[in-house]
Design a protein around this nucleic acid. Structure first.
Lengths: 121, 121
DNA sequence: TAGTTAATTAACTATATGGTTAAATATAAA
DNA sequence: TTTATATTTAACCATATAGTTAATTAACTA
């Protein structure tokens, strides 16, 4: 898919690319500098391809400086991704008193330990 | 890649799957119920496959109830994803006074509008 | 101009992904 | 036991992804 949220998540779904972003969060870097930690595992063209994915997702911008291509992290696509995920925060926080948990606690089906329904905290 | 962060992001990198999570955030649903909005665009086995991706990422858990398979949203993998992204918050907030912006502002290169360096807020 | 460094592109390969239709399985109901 | 409903699995296909090596482009340097 080519919607921007999908592109962002897709770009983040690779540990090499996430490591590249981590590196860029410490400061701008040329393609070569960025590639250095990965050249034991893959070729330079492979790194170029990963960079292209990050660029298309808008997470990295590349400029020109002599024969180097300084890369810069752009976080704005991450904002949209986090905003989307925030809708689900309730599903990883205080899950113990979500409605469905409550409903389960009051209908004493098989295996129901904790029938008491006031068990907040 | 099969690390869990990659699996989570990969699972989120598809609008159908995100829509399925959105549906599940409104309440548990059987596979058929979940599939209903998508059957104009794809077959039921396609939905099953998407569900499997969500399950492997730990975002959905399926149980048995007669011939139905009620699905439930599990947000915990989202927490790890958000935690990872939070490291980059500074790159989408107050980017105007990040160090590199500051450095740019004090060396009066070509096209330098805003040479003054005290321009917070 | 020739050579060096930085990075990209081309061409190719293997595997993953997202979809299909048809068949199989599981449970309930008649 | 047969039938109906819910869901999954199998087999297949097209395209995308992630990698490779070799060649090419771009800019600096001697």
């Amino acid at each position: 898919m080519n919607d921007s949220l999908s592109q962002t998540f897709q770009a983040l779904a690779d540990p090499t690319r996430r490591a590249m972003l981590a590196r860029l969060s410490q400061g701008d870097a040329s393609v070569g500098d960025l590639a250095k930690p990965f050249l034991k595992d893959m070729s330079l063209p492979a790194v170029t391809k990963h960079l292209k994915v990050l660029e298309k997702a808008g997470l990295v911008t590349k400029t020109k400086e002599a024969q180097w291509r300084p890369c810069k992290l752009n976080g704005t696509p991450l904002k949209d991704a986090v905003d989307w995920m925030e809708h689900y925060r309730v599903f990883w926080e205080e899950s113990f008193d979500r409605l469905d948990e409550y409903l389960k606690s009051i209908q004493p089906s098989k295996k129901s330990k904790g029938k008491k329904h006031g068990c907040k905290k």
